[in-house]
Design a protein around this nucleic acid. Sequence first.
DNA 1: AATTTTTATGGTAGCGCTACCATAACGCCA
DNA 2: TGGCGTTATGGTAGCGCTACCATAAAAATT
Lengths: 347, 347
Amino acid sequence: MPKKSPPLSVEKRRRSTGRVTLADVALEAGVSPITASRSLRGDAPVSDDVRARVVVAAEKLGYVPDPAARALASARGASIVLLVPMITNMVFVDLIESVHDVLFPAGYQALIGITHYDPAQEEKLIRSYLAHRPAGFLVTGFDRTEAARRLLADSGAPCIHLMEVTNATGIYSVGFSQADASAAMTEHLLLRGYKRIAFAAAQLDPRTLQRAEGYRRAMRSAKRYDPALEILNADQSSIALGGELLAQALKRKPKPDAIFFCNDDLAQGGVLAARRRNIDVPNTLAIAGFNDLNGSDQMLPPLTTIRTPRAAIGRTAAMMMLDLLRDADVPTLNVDMGYELIVREST
Amino acid sequence: MPKKSPPLSVEKRRRSTGRVTLADVALEAGVSPITASRSLRGDAPVSDDVRARVVVAAEKLGYVPDPAARALASARGASIVLLVPMITNMVFVDLIESVHDVLFPAGYQALIGITHYDPAQEEKLIRSYLAHRPAGFLVTGFDRTEAARRLLADSGAPCIHLMEVTNATGIYSVGFSQADASAAMTEHLLLRGYKRIAFAAAQLDPRTLQRAEGYRRAMRSAKRYDPALEILNADQSSIALGGELLAQALKRKPKPDAIFFCNDDLAQGGVLAARRRNIDVPNTLAIAGFNDLNGSDQMLPPLTTIRTPRAAIGRTAAMMMLDLLRDADVPTLNVDMGYELIVREST
DNA sequence: AATTTTTATGGTAGCGCTACCATAACGCCA
DNA sequence: TGGCGTTATGGTAGCGCTACCATAAAAATT
């Protein structure tokens, strides 16, 4: 007769977390855990009645899959990294929101990284996010370090570039031509009869520089390009800075009769400053912006601007990412979402 | 003599991911994996030279811990859930950024959930985020379902409430008194000699209603409260709506000589609309806002408002969360970050 | 009817890490 | 000197899930 019962009690389960696991669901449905896993993921041949039984069991027990376990076992998680330059710029907030609104209902968690317009910082972020085994990457623009590019390529996770377009092959991108949009605005001003059109920009990130390029292209082909009319400032863009750039522009020679600001923050500051100085907009001076931010239609006068499809870009890119992940055919590598010239009273 | 060698080749490693693991680091340092784990986490007794050896080995091999494996093994991940009502409101963007800036360098990933001001949605989000085994929760305000409250409590993860303060015990919160701030602005207007001060609000979320309460309190104690001067609108707040609310306010009887908008979006729309109608601000009509958003100082005239410490709230709460997680003593349960009355020309 | 191919299911063994327990080595005090 | 706590390290066994392989049954082919 044994002196002692075995040290393990009947219900051992050393570190029970109380969580409903896939094994519980499988038991309830009378199948093996693997079959349950396949039934719930739907990526393998499972008979319809088994799948239904598993789904019912999962529902009944309130089963919620564990993302950590899933990521560990499959070497690919349910998170998608979204790298943006900053979030104090509403353009990127709109982007984040639209991406989130598509990915979250599909079961993916957007991990937001902020690069502060610094390629080195972006590279560090990519390195650290790779440890999370993300399913994919959504990155802003094409300007990054060679190492970052290689990290992304080697990760095996799909990567979509946002906000700009390229005609490079084998690259996924969703955006619009910043240069074309900027040229279109410049042409609008030329068509309205303005002759000395200044271009005022801050931040000087890649997209801002592309806009400058579009402005130059349009001005040159109208034979009106004059480098003296470019006001480029590396500081961070803000409404207050718009007023300062307006003051600087008005001191230039020749004195501009129109100012095209590279974004609406600056342009809003510009119209407010003009008003403060009793400058007649648009008769003495036209003012144009870029992005059509909230409030631009309420300015005095309402602001002529370029409406950029940032929400549509986010949505489209997120849906493309989902297609890539369930590896459906994704034929369109580069999607140009266009832009829209919004003419209001400021020009 | 065995006819066949065993089926497993020397280097089996069925599903090698190529990743540098803790075991690799341990081997390099000549210790066991557990000791390596302890050395890198620093939460257990390890001799200094062993710890140093492990750190060097980790550095040399470029070891990056796997968050998924860590979460799975420890039933507590390195992510912190941050639930905000929306991100198209700059107040919450500032909050997100400041939280992120503290948590990310400390090795925590902020998971951002958007509740759309809907407690039911928030409850769903909490349920789904619990599957991620977050280390903690940062939530906005106190208004939530009973089930959500229980889920948070049962999770065992610390929870800090943002933006408001309470004197309930055993609850962590970092914020300020919305009602007091609102009352202070109302008193400022009364002191300036305005008598028929309207309160114009949109969205009508809990914090907006607290501001309304603060307004009422101040108006009542000055014996000037008149329900006819409250303009409450459930639509989403925007600059354009501010103009509409101004128009509505001016039709009320008695006709207000000041309008206190519950936030700066509306107030900015208000001053712009007043300007458009050639109303003299502040002589015919004073306008005040709340939050001190970007651009309010550039309005015509610059806007009197309440500067809310949202960045400081995010920072403080995030640091408090880090303290709670390394379970240092966190004596201050409710932190009032205060507010600041910014008087400009609009009042 | 015998064979191959396809389809549905299960068994096993990890993914990389840490909780728990055990153990050895080192004091400390009586 | 022996018992007892304390400190540093290691062994083992999972956390919950899925990749890989095997196998049985069904269908298609010869």
